[in-house]
Computed example of a mutant assay.
Amino acid sequence: MSATLGWLCLVASGLTDVAWAIAMKKAAGSAHHGWTFASLVLLALFVLLLTKALQVLPLGTAYAVWTGIGAIGTVGAGIILFGEPATAARLCFIGLVLAGIVGLKLT
């Protein structure tokens, strides 16, 4: 696998992680079986994609980027889908996470 494909798998894994978090929220502690099942499928998918990415990418960088994608994505999903606050401080700190991801990708 090429490094480019590794990065694509990593980004796909991060986005799948966000979808997993949304499904977990919707599952409401396993009260909604469809969402619970979806969350388990998404969990398996993001682990598979992350495993593929780690075959060719440095562990520290890949894991930091993956968690950053998840953090940024879940904060955005919380704001858009669940009405969580979009305060200036939250957005500023998410910007710092994004800057860290870009910095790791470039180095």
Rank of each mutant, 00 (worst) to 15 (best):
G73V: 07
F93A: 00
I80N: 09
W7M: 10
I94T: 01
F37N: 10
S2T: 14
R90Y: 03
V18L: 07
Q55N: 13
H32P: 09
G83W: 13
V41H: 07
V18Q: 02
A21I: 05
L10M: 06
W20R: 06
L59H: 03
L91V: 10
A62M: 10
A21H: 01
A62W: 02
Y63M: 08
G14Q: 01
A27E: 00
L5D: 06
A38K: 07
T16H: 03
V41W: 10
G103Q: 15
T36A: 08
T107F: 14
W7D: 05
L5K: 10
Q55V: 11
V47W: 07
G103W: 14
H32R: 10
K26W: 01
V56F: 03
G68I: 07
L8D: 01
L81T: 09
C92I: 14
V56G: 00
I79N: 03
I79G: 00
A99S: 15
K52M: 06
A64V: 06
G73Q: 06
K52I: 07
I69G: 03
G14C: 05
G29A: 03
K26D: 10
L106K: 15
H32A: 07
G60S: 04
G78C: 00
T74K: 05
G6R: 00
G103S: 14
V75E: 08
V41I: 15
C9M: 02
A64Q: 04
T51A: 14
L50T: 05
P58T: 01
L45M: 07
A77D: 08
V56A: 02
A19W: 04
I69H: 09
G83S: 11
T67K: 05
V41F: 15
H33D: 11
L45R: 01
V11I: 12
T51H: 05
A89C: 11
K25R: 14
